[in-house]
Design a protein around this nucleic acid. Sequence first.
DNA 1: CCTGAAATATGATTTGGATCATATGATGCC
DNA 2: GGCATCATATGATCCAAATCATATTTCAGG
Lengths: 187, 187
Amino acid sequence: MPEPYNLIPPSALRPLTRAAGDKVFRQGARTCGLYVVKCGRVHLERVGPDGERFIIYRAGPGMSLAEASVFSDRYHCDAVVAEAGAFVQIDKAAVLSAFADPDFARAYARQAAQQIQAQRQALEIVGIRRAEERVYAGMVADLLESSVVDFASALHLSHEATYRALRKLVNDGRIANPTRGTYHLRP
Amino acid sequence: MPEPYNLIPPSALRPLTRAAGDKVFRQGARTCGLYVVKCGRVHLERVGPDGERFIIYRAGPGMSLAEASVFSDRYHCDAVVAEAGAFVQIDKAAVLSAFADPDFARAYARQAAQQIQAQRQALEIVGIRRAEERVYAGMVADLLESSVVDFASALHLSHEATYRALRKLVNDGRIANPTRGTYHLRP
DNA sequence: CCTGAAATATGATTTGGATCATATGATGCC
DNA sequence: GGCATCATATGATCCAAATCATATTTCAGG
C-alpha cells in the first residue's frame, strides 16, 4: 500500500475482491475514489472509435489506479480485472479532505513526484532503440529486480532479445553473470 | 507554468537564464528547489558506471523538473541545458510550507495525478510494436496536436514510419486526411 | 519422487521499422 | 521575389529485433 494512504482514516477504506473479467468501475460511472491493488492485476482500458480496446495502464500488486478520479466526476475509462485479486477502494471525499493535513499532502506529493520521476526514466529507457543499450540502461536504472522475463517486459523487449543482450554485455565485460539467472553491473 | 505554482509566493520564484551546455544543477549538490522551463530545453542526465551519460528526462517549455528534489537533500542527477532558455527556480522550503495550504495541496495533487495518468498511457502506447497500431493508438489518445514530427517523436517512431502508418490508416479508412498535414479520427 | 509449468538460454528465419535518398509544398526572411 | 529551411511525403535498402523452435534447469504441487 502506497504510504500516504496510511494517513487516511480506516473507515474510508473499503476492501473488495473481484474475479477475472469483472469490472472494478466503468467509463462514465460516477467516481467514488481511487484503488490500490493488494493482489491480482487490473487493466485500465479505453474503447476506440471502432470498439477496439486500448489498454492505458496495467496495475499489479502495490500499485494504485484512478488517482485522478479524486478530482473528477466520472471515470474516464474501464477498469477490468485481468487476474482475480483483492483491492482496496479509497473514498474520494476522504482523500480530498485529507489534503487539509499537511503531512498527508507532503507524503502524497513525495510519492507522486517519485513516481513521475520513475515513469519519465522508464519512458526514456524504452525510447532507446538498440536492445543492448536499452538493457544496459535498464541495468543502470536497477530495473532487473526479479526475473529476466519481468525485466524484459518493463523494457518492452522480447525476453529472447533481452537474454541475448545480457549475454553480449557479459561477453563485453560490462555486466557480470555470476550464476544462471543473476546479473549485475560490473563495478 | 503548471498551475499549482501560482499559489507560491512570488518571492520564492527566482527567474534565471542559461546558455546551451550550462548546468542548472549538478548531481550531489544541495537541493534548493524545483524548476519550471519557460523556454528552451533541459536534459536530466545520470552518469553510468563507465562514465556514459544517460538521459533520464527531457523537459521543454511549460514542463517542470526535479519535483522530487523538494523531498531530498541532494540532486540525484545533472540538469544540462540542451537549448538555451529561461527557467524559474521554485524554492524548496516555500513549496514544502505551501502544503499547509489545502488549495495548493489539491492543485498539486490534481496536476500530479493527471501527469501520472498521461505518462502511463504514453508508456503503454510506446509499448505497441506495430507502427500502424501505435500510430492509431496515438491518434485515439489525441497525441497528434501540432506536427507529425512531434507526434512521431512522442511515439518513439521515425517520422517516415509515422507518415507511412498514417497513409495506411487513411487508405484503410480508419482516419481522415482532409488536407496535407492534417489527420483526424474517422468516426 | 514425479510431473508439468515457467524461467533460462540460444539458434534459425522473417519482417517491419530505421535509415538513406529524393522530391515537393509551405513558410519565413532579407 | 528569391532563397533557405522545415514539414510533408514516399521509395529502396538494410539490419536488428520479433518470432518460431528447441533444450536445459529450476521449482511448485500432487
